[in-house]
Simulated assay, not measured.
Amino acid sequence: MSLFSGLFGNYTEVSPRELQQQYGAYLMPGETVQTGFRLVRDTFILTDKRLILFDHQGVTGKKTRVVSIDLDSIYDVTMETAGTGFDDSELTIHYITSPYYKANNLQTASYRFEFSKKFNIQPFYVALVSLAYENKQRING
């Protein structure tokens, strides 16, 4: 079932232990995997410091693009739950890409994740939106 879920663009949860074994070389010293999700070949990991996105490219998947989003740069999170039919749940994070968070020409980006309707994204949303709220208080305080 998870293969079909992946084929339709939905992430499935992967154990932190498995993620640590496979992607431990990409972690900073002292960084700890909290949770992670896989989409056929692509993976994203939530650590205690950042969100790491692994985009395996090409036929063999050996070429890999790694994107790191600092958790303290996330300022907004939106969630859309699945409806009836073939709808999926979506979670979108909005984050600051500028090196200085209080810059005059602040640059931002967003990233959207799709989950199967069977996956309860609400706890994940609450964790990220709580983090975003704390970040806004810190940045604007």
Score class of each variant (00 low, 15 high):
Val59Gln: 07
Ala103Asn: 08
Lys117Ala: 04
Glu80Ala: 08
Thr78Gly: 14
Gly30Val: 03
Asp70Cys: 08
Phe119His: 11
Ser110Gln: 15
Val14Lys: 13
Thr35Gln: 13
Leu39Thr: 01
Thr35Phe: 04
Gly36His: 07
Val40Ala: 04
Val14Ser: 09
Asn10Pro: 01
Phe4Asn: 13
Gln57Ala: 00
Thr84Ile: 11
Ser5Cys: 08
Tyr95Glu: 05
Phe4Ser: 12
Gly30Trp: 03
Asp70Val: 00
Leu128Ile: 08
Gln122Phe: 04
Glu80Tyr: 01
Ser110Val: 09
Thr78Glu: 14
Asn120Gly: 00
Lys118Phe: 11
Glu80Ile: 05
Ala109Cys: 06
Tyr75Met: 05
Phe124Cys: 07
Phe44Gln: 05
Glu114Thr: 14
Asp42Gln: 10
Asp88Tyr: 00
Val59Glu: 04
Leu131Thr: 15
Glu31Asn: 09
Thr81Ser: 11
Asp48His: 02
Ala25Ser: 08
Leu19Ser: 04
Lys62Asp: 09
Leu71Gly: 03
Ile69Cys: 02
Ala82Ile: 06
Lys117Leu: 01
Arg112Tyr: 07
Phe37Lys: 06
Tyr23Ser: 07
Ser5Arg: 13
Leu51Asn: 07
Arg65Phe: 04
Gly24Gln: 05
Leu7Arg: 08
Ser110Cys: 11
His56Gly: 13
Ala25Asp: 12
Leu106Asp: 01
Val40Thr: 08
His56Gln: 12
Ile93His: 08
Ile52Met: 14
Gly6Thr: 02
Asp55Cys: 02
Thr92Cys: 05
Asp55Thr: 05
Thr12His: 13
Phe113Asp: 06
Tyr75Trp: 07
Asp72Met: 03
Ser130Tyr: 00
Val40Gln: 01
Tyr23Asp: 03
Gly6Lys: 01
Thr78Arg: 15
Tyr26Asp: 15
Gly9Pro: 01
Leu131Pro: 08
Leu53Glu: 07
Tyr100Asp: 15
Tyr95Ile: 05
Gly85Glu: 07
Thr32Tyr: 01
Thr64Val: 15
Gly85Pro: 03
